[in-house]
Amino acid sequence: MSAATAPTTTASPGPAPVARRRRPDAGTVLLGIWGVLGFLFLFFPVLVIVAYSFNEGRLLQSYRGFGLGAYEDALTNSAITSGVQVSIYVGIFSALVAAVLGSLAGVAVARRAGARWIGWLTALLGLVMVTPEIVNAVSLLPWFVTLGTDWGFTPLNSGIVRLIVAHSLFSCAVVTFIVRARMAGLSESLEEAAADLGAPPLRRFLDITFPLMRPAVISGALLSFTLSLDNTVLSSFVSTADATPFPVYVFASVRSSLRPAIAAMSTLMLLLTLVALALVAVVLITSRKRTGEGMSLASTLAGG
């Protein structure tokens, strides 16, 4: 049967245009089923957490009816709210540190890609990214103690400062690689053109280089922020009693008892993360629309 050759002779009232679509083969269908199952798997525990945040029971694991009590608890429990405050504070500042240091390094690495020491730096940044967090954590703890207590480097006795420094390390590497990818895609002749038109070096950076790398810097900073919010291992080692970020509080609760309030606050934090991610997407998409080029969102978030 061909829908194209006999447009009017068939009397059947069936929806004719549908038949024109090529039917997907069995392999595609199986892949599709696999993909959907995969997504269900990925979302399953997240949905469980969201569902259990409406648990009216005393313990998180045993469901005792629907209610918003957990949210009220979460927002009034000072341990939780101060934990969230510490998390957000640390997230913002570590993201700032990473954005500044990483952007500078990203420009350098992209523009001096041939130099040998750039190779060493790239290797070091790669090492930062592949070192297990636990090794980082156990090495930073004695180092902070040594610097802060023994060598009198007192700012490092503050839990907040320690958290910001610790979280910034991985984020620096992330921002560097994102900015490098962006800069590598930009022709150096743009900067030459600015020079040609009379712009001295600093103006050139402010007029041309920075605006063009800005989407990468912003998305790198927002990613750093979410990484910092997520961080548990480093935080639980370097934090001090007066500055306990939310994940560390949760991790401590795992050993004693988990309450629905934790699920409630986690759900709120998830929303916060999603907003940050949405911002990354908006930044990248608008910059691509405006300039007609840019990185794919996926490539950026996957790190290059």
Binding site: G35, F39, L42, F43, F44, P45, V46, V48, I49, Y52, L59, L60, Q61, S62, T226, L229, D230, T232, P247, V250, F251, V254, L258, I262, A263, S266, M269, L270, T273, L274, L277, A281, L297, A298, L301
Partner: peptide, 27 residues
Amino acid sequence: AVALVLVPYWTNFLVRTIGWQIVLSPT
């Protein structure tokens, strides 16, 4: 689809592990 992969990924690592703990717990 990429965003859908990222949403669980950017959910707190510890929290989604706790999600499995809830599922696997005897209660």
